[in-house]
Design a protein around this nucleic acid. Structure first.
Lengths: 243, 243
DNA sequence: CGGGGGCTTGAGAATTTTCAAGGTCCGTGG
DNA sequence: CCACGGACCTTGAAAATTCTCAAGCCCCCG
């Protein structure tokens, strides 16, 4: 189970076994039996995917879901006039695309790699079968959906009630919590100004102006796309973040 | 199973049996066995609840969830400055409050009756137990959470990208689809201007101004809190609703 | 070294909020 | 029965926020 070389349909030099991913935090699979894990290792397809690759698009039927070994994927919807709205990110240990499979609907969002990723593609059948046969796994999926639903409700409230300035401050703190910082204390995740705008539902120019205002106020420092938080307390105050 | 008179802890003259509710569209319970249904009828508590009653509040632990027999309940969050954001409504056949029980979190929203309701309160234990023992029921819950998650994603995109005017047109059409109309073709659901504002994340005055603009433009007619749609096509166009 | 994508800034326009004031409606208590 | 109070609705005017359009810059990649 712990060997590292992929075979068969997997075209990576280093294919993580599912056990590796569990160790990496993909807790969703932690209650699979050894047999189910072996089965999963057989049916999954694992690939390295470059930034910019679209994995699936809103409105299409999808025949499997993804588990992230490494890298970052953005999950987004396309609104009127083609403007995109980023719903969430998936990173190491996260799964995505499972929602449409469970609910039997078409994909309600699109997925694009924004940081080179190692992704496992797992057939819908495996999910549907295992959800029916493994009670603990079923509870994990249910749990995940319910937690995401709670997050979505919070997001709805924030986006509906907070100003762009508040949302930007909040999202910077969120990116910090979610992705952490590199050796120089810059946020690890690197987003274009437009992507930031698409997370908080505003215009690119507004993000630029507010970022530079935050910089002037010594709340953050900027280096190209890299953002470093200098003053957490003030950002929290501005973003009405209590935690 | 089909008798109508409640006994024991239920204090209604007419307590619906769970089978009644299933016939009413509470499909979530359709895969319970006869024994489970009898059990449910035993453990549930059923009451008539007046408009304005708060059932539970955001942040608290809850020890059960609700099933709506009749009436309407609004599910909302309280944002900064105490302004409320309506996340969704629950009506006949819907359940609510299950999310926090499944995910083991505190309630992420509050619930208040806005139209006199018949509500059954079902202990958390019943949900947790049945989800573990009845595969089909478990799938129903999972399915429900996933569909709500899809709805939430759509809502996020709309609220982030559409103007207040677009959102108002859209929400009027939504209320029509969801609650239907009475004999005079007025929307059945009756909301204050403030509640409408709290659905679309805007100020009460903005709703008032836009409603009266829609009225001037002959898109709707107004009679106190009652709204009648006169021109669906134009509302759809304004709200960028394609369906 | 040319082109393209992304970033920045400015200025004016549009949308939306806020504050203030007054009106209506309805249920309750005197 | 009527007056009163409170909640809700309406309108106006000014202010604040945010968007849009336009232009120019930078920087990296081919």
């Amino acid at each position: 189970m712990m060997h590292k070389n992929g075979v068969g349909k997997n075209n990576l030099e280093l294919v993580p076994t599912c056990q590796d991913c569990i160790n990496n935090g993909a807790t969703i699979f932690r209650h699979l039996s050894d047999e189910e894990l072996r089965d999963l290792d057989q049916v999954k397809g694992c690939t390295i995917v470059k930034r910019g690759t679209v994995l699936y698009q809103e409105g299409n039927r999808i025949n499997g879901f993804y588990c992230v070994g490494r890298g970052i994927v953005k999950i987004f919807k396309t609104g009127v006039e083609g403007k995109e709205m980023i719903i969430r990110f998936a990173q190491s240990g996260d799964i995505f695309g499972y929602r449409s499979i469970i609910s039997g609907e078409n994909a309600c969002s699109s997925a694009m790699v924004i940081e080179e990723a190692v992704l496992c593609h797992i057939p819908a059948d495996f999910l549907l079968k295992t959800v029916n046969t493994n009670q603990a796994f079923s509870r994990e999926i249910m749990n995940l959906a319910c937690r995401e639903l709670g997050d979505a409700n919070n997001f709805i409230t924030d986006i509906a009630q907070k100003t762009v300035r508040e949302r930007l401050a909040e999202i910077i703190l969120y990116l910090h919590n979610e992705f952490g910082v590199d050796a120089d204390e810059y946020l690890k995740i690197s987003l274009t100004r437009e992507e930031i705008a698409n997370m908080i539902g505003t215009a690119t120019e507004s993000v630029i102006r507010l970022l530079s205002e935050f910089k002037t106020d010594q709340l953050i420092s900027l280096n190209g796309r890299k953002i470093k938080i200098l003053d957490y307390a003030s950002l929290k105050r501005i973003g009405n973040v209590f935690s």
